[in-house]
Every structure is written in structure tokens, then in C-alpha cells.
Design a binder for these strands. Sequence first.
DNA 1: TCTGGGGTCCTAGGACCC
DNA 2: TCTGGGGTCCTAGGACCC
Length: 396
Amino acid sequence: MNTALTPTMNPANMPPRRIAHLDMDAFYASVELLRYPELRGLPVVIGGRDEHQPVMQADGKRHFYRLRDYAGRGVITTATYEARALGVHSAMGVMKAAQLAPDAILLPVDFAIYRHYSRLFKAAVAGIASHIEDSGIDEIYIDLTELPDETLPLARRIKQAVKDATGLSCSIGITPNKLLAKICSDLEKPDGLTILGMADIPQRIWPLPVRKINGIGPKAANKLASLGITTIAELAQAELSFLQMHFGRSYSVWLYEVSRGIDTRPVIINAEPKSISRETTFERDLHPRRDRPDLSEAFTALCVQVADDLKRKGYAGRTIGIKLRFEDFRTVTRDFSLSAHTADAVVIRRAAGECLRRVPLQKKIRLLGVRVSALCAAAAVPAAEASRQQELPLVL
DNA sequence: TCTGGGGTCCTAGGACCC
DNA sequence: TCTGGGGTCCTAGGACCC
């Protein structure tokens, strides 16, 4: 091993941090198994619509839908490990999954209950370690640096607290930073616990495919593969100047650093949202003229939902945007910044309507979305601004 | 039987200001 | 009567993540 590539221990000469990444195991599917224990051990996928709700039969047993019963659009959100063994994984089209595992049980997505269990597990962790960053519904980062406890017993205590609060298992990775912790929580899933220091990087991290790095997606992985780089070790051996020839300025530096396990991002405790949006994929593609009434109704409904979300969460936004996806999957966006923040459905609808007029509508529409960004807390909107809220966009 | 919905961050060009 | 340059905002698109 080239010693020149030994990861930098500590650029800032600080004591190493102890950062945990906690990831719930097959979260949605596991929550569903709590209420339908008879499904344990079976291949189960989450991704149906409300109509696929299990129904109680006359004999007192539940009837579950199977993947083969599904018709229409949609993707798998989560699959149990038994279903994954059949080749089904999240983000796969439901119709494709049905070919692989026609007998797998299909359940509708129920975000309300997942959010409930999400709150439970996060509260359980917060009872032990309060320095927590939310990273979606089923995972968190925890900065354990300031706690006096030994790492291993502390991690076991956190896992047990999550189990006691929810009945669910999780996997934890603990390392000097978020990047490595995220990789590590996945190494021994499910119910895993992995603790690594910088010295373990060559052994444990470098053999992994680059795709395991959070931030290297399918595009970057493909490009790297075309350059002969598939493992993190190979990435760590690439010269910075070589990476800079093929990637953007900041991305190449980032690649260079993450391959060496370097990541100085802090654990962020209270992140404010940057945007709030709603979108919907239609059951069938809508024709911009012939289906105008349906389109218009859906458009208004999205604006009302976004406005409700804003009010419920206590925000107002200044930039109103729309998103369209056409039948050929081409996606376009338009946005417009108002002179004042708003959370009003009528104002949002009007601005979004102006955005829509700037999109040439040649093809049928598959998806329509509405987004509000440039947010600020509703309570912080100045009175002078609030009184101007009904103003029309002037320039359009 | 292709490809959900809610987000974040980055890039890049043009406008506009000093 | 040349075309510097930095900073910030606006808009559009795209990669990526859960």
C-alpha cells in the first residue's frame, strides 16, 4: 500500500470526532410488519396505492394484495430482505418487480405511521445523545464526541433504546466523520454495529465500490468506470490533476478528499427547510388542451396543498416554481420571484399559472409539481411586505 | 408492462450594482 | 469612442439522496 495515500488523520489538529450514523433497517417494511406480524418471513414490498389496503375477510384473516394484482404506475419504496433476495429493490418500477416476484405481498405506503415511528426512534436517541442531525425519515447523524461514555457500550445503549421504543432494529456506524459513518452503518446491515478509525480505511473502505460513497451516483460512477476506476482504492490512487481533467473544479477536489476518508462537515442540529413542494404523476399522461380541466384542477390542488404545508409548518416563500414532466420523461422547470413572501394559495396559484404560460406545451404531461422556495419563518415576514402580498407579478 | 415524491446542492449565464 | 472586476440576485437544469 502506498504510504503517501495514508489518510490525513486530522487536518485541523483537533481530537478526532466520534460521529455516528444510525439507519433504521428496511424501515417502512419493518413498521408494516409490526402491524401485520403474519407477514414475517415473507417477501413484502411497500409501494401500492390506498386501494391495496389489506381487507379483513369473513374468516377473520386479512387478505393481502400480491404484486401480480398491481396495474399502473409506481415504484417500490422499500422491500423486506426476503423480497430483496428475489431481486426487488427500492426505486424499481412496481410492474418490473411484479415480474421478478409476482407472489410478493404488496402494501400501500402509509407515511403517517412511518413519521410516527420516526419520531419515536429519534426521541429515544435524543434521550441518550442530544447532538442529532435529521437526515430523512429513517436516518440520523449523532455527534458523540462530547459524551464521556466508551463508544461500544454507548452504541449498544442507543440500539437498545431504539428497539425498546419502537420494536425495530437499526444499524449504526461510528467513525471520525459523517462520510465514513454513513458508509459504515451499511457494512453489517441489518442490526449492525461498526466502529472504524482513520487507520481502518485502507482495510475496510478502499475495497468498496465508489458507488458506496454518499454523493457518487449513477452518472459519476459510470464516468469513473469509463476511466478505469471502480473501487474507492482506485479513486484514492488517482491524481488530483487527473480528476480535474474529467470533473468540475469542486467535485474533483471533493472526490480526491472523500476517497481518503476526509470530511469535515459538522453535524447540523437545526436545519431550516429551503423549499416546500408538492407534485403528482398522473395515472395517464394528460393532453395540454383536451385534458385542460383535469390539469387545471390538479394544478390548483397542488397549490392549495403547498399553501397548507407552508402554513402548517409556519413558513412563507417568495419564489414560486413549477415542474413539468412530459410523456418522454423530459423535465422542465420555471420559477418566478415575487416582491413579497406568501403562503396564500391564490397568490401561489396565480404566480404558478404565469410560470406555466412560459412553457411550450407540445407533448402530453406526465407529472405536474408546484414548489415554493426562498422561505422565511411566517412570523418574520415584515408587516409592510405582508400588506403587499396580493400584488400581481409585474413583469409577466 | 420502465422510471414516485420530497428534498438539497451545484453550475452557469445574464442582469445589475458599485 | 472599447470591452476591468467583484458581488449578488434571478432563473434553468441536473445530479444526487432518502
